[in-house]
Every structure is written in C-alpha cells, then in structure tokens.
C-alpha cells in the first residue's frame, strides 16, 4: 500500500502536469489563428511600427516550439506580454512599445483582486447557507420543505445567470433601490463601501452556486444515511443528534468538502457573465472585452488564469478528500 504522502504527491504532480498540458493547448489554440495575425488583428489601418512591434514581441519568425518555451518562461516570471489594445495605443502616441504601455500583468492584477473579492464574498454567503440547507433537506426528505427547496434549487440551476441577475436588479435596485445595480469599484474604496457595491453580483452568484451545492450536499447526506452503519447506530438506541454528529458527519466530510470545492471552481466560470451584467471591473469583464476586440495576449493570459484557478480548486478537492478518508489515514 502506498502511503498517504505518496498519494498526495502523485496527485500534486498530476495537477502540475495538467496545468502544463493545458498551457500547451491554449498556446496551440492561439497559434491556430489564420495567417500573420499581427496584421489581421490590427487591421488595415495599423501603422507598420505597431505591426512590427507585435511581430517582434511574439517572435513570429521563430519555430513553434521555441516560441512556446519562451512564452512559458516569461509567463512563469509574471511577464504576460503587452495588450494589443495598449500596444496599438502606444504606437499611435509614438513612444517605444515597451516603455509607455501598461503590461497585461499590470492590467490584470487589480482586476484579479476584484474578482477574488467577489468570489470570496459569494463563498462566505453561499457555503454555510447551502450546506445547512442541504443537510436540512436531507434530514426532512420527502417533506414539504424538501420539495419546496428542491423545486427552488432546480429553477435557479436552470436559469441563466443573467436572468437571476436582472430579477434581482428589478426587485432590489429598481423597484426598491436598496442596492446599487452598477458595481463601479475603484482603488482606495473603504471595505464597507466595496462590500455594499459587490453585494448584488455576489447575491446573484450565490443563488446559482447555492442551488448546486445544496443539491449535491443533500444527495451526499442521503446516500450516507442509507448506509448500514447508520442503521446500526439507530438500532443501538443512539439519539438523532448524535447519529448525525458522531456517525454521519465524519464520513460526510469528504463528500461535502468535495461539493464545496467543485462549486467554488464553478464560480470561476460563473463570474464572467455576472461581471458583465453589473459592469464589475473584474477579470471576467476584461476577458469578454478582449475576446470581442481579439486582444490575443490578454485573452491568453485570462484563459490561463481561469484554467489555473479551476485546476487548483479541483486539486484541492482531491487532496482534501484523500486526507479525510480514514482508510488512507490509518493504513493497515
């Protein structure tokens, strides 16, 4: 039997390998653009200097493998390149491309912090709420409460994020102006104000994620309550509270942790649409804008960040569930 340390190390290595391969996939996808995309993207009106700058920046005359290694090397050093939009702007202004323009990294950093803030606020509301509701629904399964929660969660899973967002805007921002519908966040805001402006997008995301998390928690608990050792505990005359806390919970930990991390990973995707609806200055909104104007370096960088966050969350889920498995923690 492999020790638990070995299993975790192997999982970590697999995670890093996946990240590496995903970076190759993203790199190849971008290189599947037709022709000399420096020209294609900047359009006919671009100055020759701008085209030349991008060509030089991307080293288009070099072989694919060399370009990938160079790109990866710079990525690992935090150099995500320069946004086309910025480069274009810089070339119009007439300065040298590297000196005046804001790099992608500089552009992304504050937005990435904003997105993390939004995801964090959502997680703080959604996790306790959904786990609590899920456990309650499992305990009172078949009751009116369970059915109501079931229908409610199905509806909110099925709705597009922008539908939920506009319903919330309608009730909480337009009819009863309790919360602002635009989340114009800027540097140097106080925490309270920032939280206040983030609340509506966070509530929208909460609706989406809570429904998923709650359903999965409920399923995990019901699965567990059907196991023979729970029946055994009941037949030993153990009270319902202790059955839940001592017999069910230690075994439910792994599935619940799994549910939470998977849904936090899902949040990464969910932020994109919600950020656009609320004009929230996060990485998702930047991503969509860059996709529209085909700003390749930014798209590439955003994609990599989203994928990395997603992979790391899944990695964390796996490692935590390995750690909470008594069979692995106490080998024979």
């Amino acid at each position: 039997m492999a020790s638990i340390g070995n299993i975790i190390l192997r999982r970590l290595a697999l995670g890093i390998l996946t990240l590496f391969i995903v970076s190759i996939v993203i790199f190849l996808a971008v290189n599947a653009l037709p022709g000399d995309f420096a020209q294609a993207i900047l359009g006919q009106g671009a100055t020759p200097e701008a085209v030349e700058a991008i060509r030089r920046d991307l080293g288009l005359d070099q072989p694919l493998a060399t370009r990938y290694v160079q790109w990866l090397w710079r990525m690992l050093h935090g150099d995500l390149g320069i946004s086309f939009a910025q480069a274009n702007f810089a070339s119009y202004v007439g300065s040298a491309s590297d000196a005046g323009a804001v790099t992608v990294a500089e552009q992304l950093a504050p937005r990435f912090r904003n997105t993390l803030f939004l995801a964090g606020v959502t997680a703080v509301i959604a996790v306790p709420l959904s786990v609590g509701l899920g456990i309650l629904a499992a305990l009172y399964r078949g009751s009116v409460f369970d059915r109501g929660v079931n229908i409610f969660s199905l509806v909110s899973i099925s709705s597009p994020e922008f539908f939920l967002a506009y319903v919330l805007i309608l009730f909480l921002a337009v009819l009863d102006p309790v919360l602002p519908s635009l989340s114009n966040i800027y540097e140097g805001m106080s925490f309270g104000e920032r939280l206040f402006k983030t609340l509506l997008p966070a509530l929208t995301l909460t609706l989406v994620v809570t429904a998923h998390m709650m359903r999965m928690t409920r399923a995990a608990i019901i699965n567990l309550l059907a196991s023979p050792y729970i029946e055994m505990a009941r037949l030993k005359g153990i009270g319902p509270l202790r059955v839940i806390l001592w017999h069910a919970l230690p075994n439910a930990l792994a599935p619940i942790i799994n549910v939470i991390t998977i849904n936090l990973a899902y949040l990464v995707t969910g932020v994109v649409v919600v950020e656009v609806v609320f004009v929230y200055p996060g990485i998702g909104q930047l991503f969509v804008d860059s996709v529209k104007i085909r700003d390749i370096p930014v798209v590439q960088a955003c994609c990599l960040i989203f994928a990395a966050a997603y992979i790391l969350m899944n990695l964390a889920a796996d490692i935590l569930s390995i750690l909470s498995n008594p069979r692995l923690r106490h080998p024979k």
């Binding site: 196991s227 023979p228 050792y229 037949l235 001592w246 008594p326 069979r327």
Partner: peptide, 15 residues
C-alpha cells in the same frame, strides 16, 4: 441489541 449480517458495512469506518 442487534448483530447485522455484514460487519464490514455495519461498523462506522471513521471510528
């Protein structure tokens, strides 16, 4: 008291 058929499933794996 009760003694079940499958002891492996009727003991709680976490304790």
């Amino acid at each position: 008291a009760y003694v079940a058929q499958s002891a492996a499933a009727s003991f709680n794996p976490a304790h």
